[in-house]
Design a protein around this nucleic acid. Structure first.
Lengths: 342, 342
DNA sequence: CTGAAAGCGCTTACAG
DNA sequence: CTGAAAGCGCTTACAG
């Protein structure tokens, strides 16, 4: 036949009612085994795929998953999308992207409208949208599943994927301490990102464990941007005695530190070791290539999609292990032994 | 009322049939003005929005637009998505992302299945998916609109947005010539990208117009990747007499050239001027910051969405001006006067 | 210019 | 275990 087969075609071919075909599609146990097999054979043979729009209309729910994000980093966004798609492949669900601005006065109504109009099955929220506590009640009200991706648990385990960013801070601290650094600094992300807090917390905690103090005069608050990295570095690198190692909340700010250090004639890593966070492409492009902390963002996305679709699908019964996602250190050339004379 | 109003609610409130409401929704002229106004008032009052799934089912076509791409650059992908969303805002259409691999044996059937299953209204194809001539016949057959984004026209004007990449090559050449460079080189993208050819063509053409020859020994074929930029630069920078200026097919490869030049002890821009292409974030992060060619990708995306939705919507009747999109040069610190002794 | 009937391709609610 | 009827919220095809 020329057009795509419908449930009616399958029913006719299998000499059953469309309702029985519907049962097979929806994996209802209320179908005799031989009936099911016959129908499945015909489905396979004809290449029948139920129309998601028709199904959605009847279900009062679409087969679409929204990614709602205000994350400004392209690499993060693309990695996350790829991961979500990995987890959704073969499920019949599709990904609708929805960048947004949390500062907008219409933010909440925009999100509500988006979810309601498309009757979304579920949404995935990366940081910092994931950290907005005004959102979950909206999804609950609209009966839309959600998974929040955040640096720390802040909701039911079913609705979370946690990236344990404090561990990233710990790993960075350990690396600098092992290289002999004792006067260290930190440029944090903006306080509106929970990750900024977590990364700093882990860093300070692990330093303390090695009797290294993170002096407040050696800490600056950046904005996760290249420019803010430059500005903070200019401030911190002017202090004496100068720090010999610095951990930045992300690669963008670390790139800014490299920029500022070069302008100030400070050699990296001979006089200053720099650690970033993210391991995005830029990390390997700057000079010197950045030692940085790597979160497996694509894998995080895959897990988030799995979590979201856990209710449907036949497999995926198990919840993921929250400890499975741990930031790791990627050592490149921006870190080295603390200067002897320090 | 608690639930969202439907067409039946509006019809009842307006004391007309749902068919008349439907006519108003679809902007049919066959409605008396006062009837239309009364209905529109009620629609506005109730906040009625027609259910896209129900509409789609009846129309046999969804309100979804697919972005089908195999472009590996995250920044490009995100800029393009943002532009498409700009153009789709308020239209009721949504964007479904579909990364793919043109080399996969199932590529064509994957695309067909995606379009057919979702009954996509249309698709947007950035490079290099846009350059695959096997795709348009599939979209035509499935009655799915499409817009191809490419460096050069290769389809009906309605189905194209052209980025005129040869102009980028021209601009790069002019810049190097004006700085006094006469021994110049080029690292091209892979031949599977039409843009690689166009950028090189424009570059060579404008050099020739200034009596500067692009010697084939000073041209290398890269893969649009950082690593390929390094490899090509190592080859080209070993030749004597050495080139004093180089134009790279994209920023990634230009970053590779900076890397290789540093390793080889060649000072940029004193001994070597480097021009990139794209003006992605990395361009301003490397050292020295890259002079590069900038295509307004987000704007290109907006135009592509406009083109695609031109048939619907009340405005947007006019086609875009193909000359509107022109690459421009962004001058930073990686280019300077040709060395005196050259 | 307007509407009643039928239908898009599915599922729910109810029977049996 | 299976099915006939009604319905999801719209539009098409046909009348008038």
């Amino acid at each position: 036949m020329n057009r795509r087969p419908t449930i009616n075609d399958i029913a006719r071919l299998a000499r059953v009612s469309k309702k029985t075909v519907s049962r097979v599609i929806n994996q209802s146990p209320l179908v005799r085994d031989d009936t099911r097999e016959r129908i499945n054979a015909i489905i396979a043979e004809t290449g029948f795929v139920p129309d998601p729009q028709a199904r959605g209309l009847a279900f009062r729910r679409s087969f679409l998953v929204g990614m709602i994000y205000d994350n400004p980093n392209p690499q993060y966004v693309v990695n996350m999308q790829a991961g979500l798609l990995d987890g959704m492949r073969g499920s019949g669900f599709e990904l609708v992207v929805h960048p947004c601005n949390r500062q907008s006065p219409t933010f909440l109504s925009d999100v509500r409208d988006f979810v309601e109009r498309l009757k979304l099955f579920g949404v995935v929220l990366p940081p910092s949208a994931s950290e907005d506590e005004r959102l979950p009640p909206i999804f609950d009200e609209l009966d839309c599943a959600y998974v929040r991706i955040a640096s720390v648990a802040m909701d039911d385990p079913e609705a979370m994927v946690v990236t344990n960013d404090h561990v990233g801070g710990i790993v960075a601290a350990r690396h600098l301490v092992e290289l002999g650094h004792r006067r260290v600094g930190h440029i944090s992300g903006p306080p509106t990102f929970r990750s900024a807090h977590e990364r700093k917390r882990g860093f300070a905690q692990e330093l303390a464990a090695h009797d290294v103090k993170l002096l407040s005069k050696n800490v600056a608050e950046g904005a996760y941007s290249f420019e803010s990295g430059i500005a903070c570095a200019e401030k911190l690198l002017a202090r004496t005695p100068r720090i010999t190692g610095i951990f930045c909340g992300n690669d963008e700010m670390a790139a800014g530190v490299l920029y500022a250090a070069r302008k100030a004639g400070i050699s990296v890593p001979r006089e200053l070791s720099v650690v970033g966070y993210d391991d995005f492409q830029v990390a390997a492009r700057v000079w010197p290539p950045l030692t940085t902390v790597c979160t497996p963002t694509r894998e995080v996305g895959r897990i988030a999609a799995d979590q979201l679709l856990r209710s449907v699908g036949d497999a995926h019964g198990v919840r993921y292990d929250p400890q499975a996602i741990l930031p790791t250190l990627v050592v490149r050339e921006s870190t080295g032994p603390a200067p002897k004379d320090a």
